[in-house]
C-alpha cells in the first residue's frame, strides 16, 4: 500500500520533471516543476518527515516558485519565442551525461547504512507520534545545530540586502 502510493508520487515527480526540462515556455516549465515539488512533498510524508513536507509546500512550491513566476512574467518571457533548447549535438551531450550520471547514482541505490548505525524500523514514525512531528526536528535544530540555525538568519539578511542592491536601478 505505502509502496504503491510512493510509486504514484515518484512517477508523477519524474514525468513532470522531464516535462519541466523539455517544455519550451518558461511558464510551463515552472508549473511542471511545481507539480514535481508537490509530489516530493507527498514522498516526504511517506518517509515520516511531515514537517519538512509542509515546509516544502510553503517555502518551495509557495514562495520560491512564485518568485520564479514573478520574474518570468516581469521579463515578459511567457510568450512563445524561439525555442531555447540547444540543437541536436547539445541534446545528445545532455542525454549522454544525464544517463551516465543516472547510471552511476543507480549503482548506489541499493546501498544501505550498516546495521549498527541504523535506527530500529519505524523509529522516526514512533517519535513523531509520541512527541509531534515538529519536535523531532526542533530538538536537533535547537540543540546540536543552534549555531548553524542562527547563521542562517545572517545568510537570509545578506540575501535580502544583496537582492535589493542588485535589482534596484539606482540606490
Amino acid at each position: 500500500m505505502v509502496l504503491g502510493v510512493f510509486w504514484v508520487f515518484a512517477g508523477v515527480a519524474i514525468v513532470s520533471a522531464f516535462l519541466c526540462i523539455t517544455r519550451r515556455s518558461p511558464v510551463a516549465s515552472a508549473l511542471w516543476l511545481i507539480l514535481t515539488l508537490f509530489s516530493l512533498a507527498g514522498i516526504f510524508v511517506l518517509l515520516d518527515a511531515q514537517f519538512i513536507a509542509a515546509l516544502q509546500v510553503l517555502v518551495y512550491a509557495g514562495a520560491i516558485m512564485v518568485l520564479f513566476l514573478f520574474v518570468i512574467m516581469l521579463l515578459n518571457l511567457g510568450r512563445q519565442g524561439p525555442s531555447d533548447l540547444r540543437g541536436w549535438p547539445g541534446r545528445l551531450v545532455a542525454a549522454a551525461l544525464g544517463l551516465l550520471l543516472a547510471a552511476e547514482l543507480w549503482a548506489v541505490r541499493t546501498w544501505a547504512p550498516e546495521e549498527h548505525l541504523r535506527l530500529p524500523e519505524g523509529a522516526i514514525a514512533r517519535m513523531s507520534e509520541a512527541e509531534g512531528p515538529v519536535h523531532v526536528i526542533s530538538d536537533a535544530l535547537f540543540r546540536e545545530y543552534l549555531i548553524p540555525f542562527e547563521l542562517t538568519s545572517v545568510l537570509l539578511l545578506a540575501a535580502i540586502v544583496g537582492a535589493v542592491v542588485l535589482a534596484k536601478r539606482r540606490l
Binding site: 519524474i14 519541466c20 514535481t36 551531450v93 545532455a94 543516472a102 547514482l105
Partner: peptide, 17 residues
C-alpha cells in the same frame, strides 16, 4: 528516484539556454 531526478536536473542545465 533521487538519482533519476538529479540526472534530469543535470540534463536540463545542459539542455536549456
Amino acid at each position: 528516484v533521487s538519482a533519476i531526478l538529479f540526472s534530469l536536473g543535470v540534463a536540463g542545465v545542459l539542455l536549456r539556454r
